[in-house]
Design a binder for these strands. Sequence first.
DNA 1: ACAATATTGAGATGATTATCTAAATATCTC
DNA 2: GAGATATTTAGATAATCATCTCAATATTGT
Lengths: 90, 90
Amino acid sequence: MRDHLFRALADPTRRKIVELLAVKDRTAGELAEEFPIAFASVSHHLGVLKNAGLVAVEREGQHMRYRLNTTVFQDMARYLVKTFSGGTDA
Amino acid sequence: MRDHLFRALADPTRRKIVELLAVKDRTAGELAEEFPIAFASVSHHLGVLKNAGLVAVEREGQHMRYRLNTTVFQDMARYLVKTFSGGTDA
DNA sequence: ACAATATTGAGATGATTATCTAAATATCTC
DNA sequence: GAGATATTTAGATAATCATCTCAATATTGT
């Protein structure tokens, strides 16, 4: 369950997407322009991030607007803090 | 550079290893017993974690004792907090 | 409804990776 | 030093994954 989360952030392109979205929301096209790979490939990465719950998407006319889901990041950060501090509970 | 870190935690077996080490230090053999895969495979995972700086290892007689490197986890947690909070600096 | 734009889905391919078995290395005990 | 135990390395294989191209879907404007 947390597997999707870590797996999603394991790819540098997807981390870059997340970092871009942290600054401001963007459409799929705006995001795709930032990378030297095919639009379809960026779309695939967006799908992975969405599936992991890291981003949310909403149609906006012809565009699809992506935004960060900060809640999930907090959950992840909490997991890390709990783990490195030798936490005993889940 | 941070790539090794996220990549290392992308695998569920390695996350389990980290969680076990968070409770207490263990030798390679003690860790390997916790998993249904071959010892050599666990050894491989330990190598990945060590390479990512997430664990440290020290010889202890015939055994190799692994322990968690909490510093790196803090770095990772810091990155997440900075990112989800819309951080502008690296 | 048609043409244009934006985005995603499908299928293929090359690279990475998790796992295995078997061999190699290191330490301990006798 | 020989044998036993602990761990890693090497080489092979199957699965996963990032990327590509091309086709499909959705929306807009005329």
